[in-house]
Write a protein that binds this DNA or RNA. Sequence first.
DNA 1: TCAATACCATTTGTGTACCAACGAATGTGA
DNA 2: TCACATTCGTTGGTACACAAATGGTATTGA
Lengths: 165, 165
Amino acid sequence: MPFQIPDSLILPALIERPFSMHYDFSDDDAARYRLDEQVGFLLRKASQRHLSIFSQNLSALTATQFAALAKLCELGPTSQNALGRATAMDAATIKGVADRLRARDLVTAEPDPVDRRRHYLIPTEAGRALYAELAGSALKISTETLAPLSDKERETLLSLLAKMG
Amino acid sequence: MPFQIPDSLILPALIERPFSMHYDFSDDDAARYRLDEQVGFLLRKASQRHLSIFSQNLSALTATQFAALAKLCELGPTSQNALGRATAMDAATIKGVADRLRARDLVTAEPDPVDRRRHYLIPTEAGRALYAELAGSALKISTETLAPLSDKERETLLSLLAKMG
DNA sequence: TCAATACCATTTGTGTACCAACGAATGTGA
DNA sequence: TCACATTCGTTGGTACACAAATGGTATTGA
């Protein structure tokens, strides 16, 4: 099943038209375009599936909040923006996530004595306890997300996703 | 600069507990959990990469808006919720997307004469023209998103993502 | 040393994404 | 035919996600 249309199939039809009309070039592309075969759409659906499984198995935190808490527990005291970089969230996003974690006393903020722009985020005891409590579920969620795939396929998928950056 | 704190720094404190306490089982999971290896995180990062490439190459519409317009052009007149199902958006989400497409006169709505709850969404001439104009860029975006992978790897990734549903 | 630059956290605004609830309309089975 | 369930579109609320702008603060390099 050819998932990818090679250039050789795309270009000729465009070239052999004697006259260029309004949407000729694009009409061909439009006819060839199938939403359901595009990476972006498949990635979005896979993410949706994952998030659905996540919220069903772990309702205490959102996936994003858990990611931030987990990374913070892994790294120890970290500035807010640095935590954002480590969890692939921009400054505005990590702020909201950190605020919600702080509102629930899972994380505290301490001013950095050296750099007055920064404040460290630090997991509280409750935060570490919750992380420890939920890590098992999180691992199970990853497994369940990959359930439709064989062991070898799971490995392959993870390495290809990692390769994509 | 060590980005990742090795197990040797995390585990000992947890292991040397003589008696099993509250989170012992989960502590192990917590030590084993690596955010950067979880499907959900890799999917989110891959989606981010895709959306970044999308907006750089196609600024006229968001990826979601383009998906809805493309599907609508593919299907022809479709009820709003049905379009949502075809594009993996729930009723609330597709409403917002449809509203924005209608505000830009890329889509119109016609009442369904048979079912008075429904209204059909129909791409306008401008909508079809824009889709035709942008489909080529959309295909290019998919290719560029997959650029880090070989041809065989791209096929594999797409089929695995499709298999995950 | 001081001006240009970079970084930190924050704010505002827009756009997904999903839940829960709603009224209106349709479909179903006894 | 009539109660019941389902579907349609909508609304309100919360939570990411990112762009762009801002005011502090640090770094740098001439």
